[in-house]
Amino acid sequence: MTNRSPLLRVEQFSGGYVEGIEIIHDVELDLFGDEILTIIGPNGAGKSTLLKAIVGALPFEHGRRYFQGEDVSGWSTPRMIASGVGYVPQVDNVFTSMSIRENLEMGGYMRRDGLRERIGEVLAMFPDLEQRPGERASRLSGGQRQMLAMARALMLDPVMLCLDEPTAALAPAARGELLSRIYQIHMTGVGILMVEQNATEALVWSDRGLVMVDGEKAMEGSGREMLTSPEVGRAFLGQEEGEGFTLEEGSRQ
């Protein structure tokens, strides 16, 4: 990495849901504004917990986190969101009884002005949603719901978007579409930090990957390094011994 300053920096970071029971231990992490960083690892490794901690949604945390150079340790989620962090939880991430447009209005609840214009801009990024802004969120497909959840998080023009397993409940075709949409959002200048179970697909789109095991950072490297590393392949990408991953297989379409 060059000597530019990171968008997000996490230092000697530990935390959990109950005081005294740590789920993540001593994690160090940097995210730069022009990156997609994907956190992978087995179930229960603390990936989602780390993401929650970063957006201020974890009851107990120790260590420091910095956002855009400012010490934001201990900041609450609303405060983080107001300062430019978008967060999409894995589940319950839309208001199901409300329309697409109303969901976006709620996403932009903290905006002082330009709500209507921003709804127009965000809808333009998601053609599926733009076609029927009055549709109730409960009637959307899994992929569309996930798009709406991201659209909602984009309402406050975040510079960083935190996505918790965005493709978890989706069919393979919808997964690819969603990941390419995330890449498009990234290209508008949004740093992306995501946690993924579908590691191979996500790493194809990522600049860097980070492996977590038992609440600790086990490995870190470029997306390409992760995909081609036999160790990572065996442990986390479901590859058999000797089976390598070729970049053609998973190239960005």
Partner: peptide, 12 residues
């Protein structure tokens, strides 16, 4: 009413 956690996270 729909989702208190998400409402709070939206700054409501």
């Amino acid at each position: 009413a729909d989702n208190p956690g998400l409402a709070e996270a939206s700054g409501i």
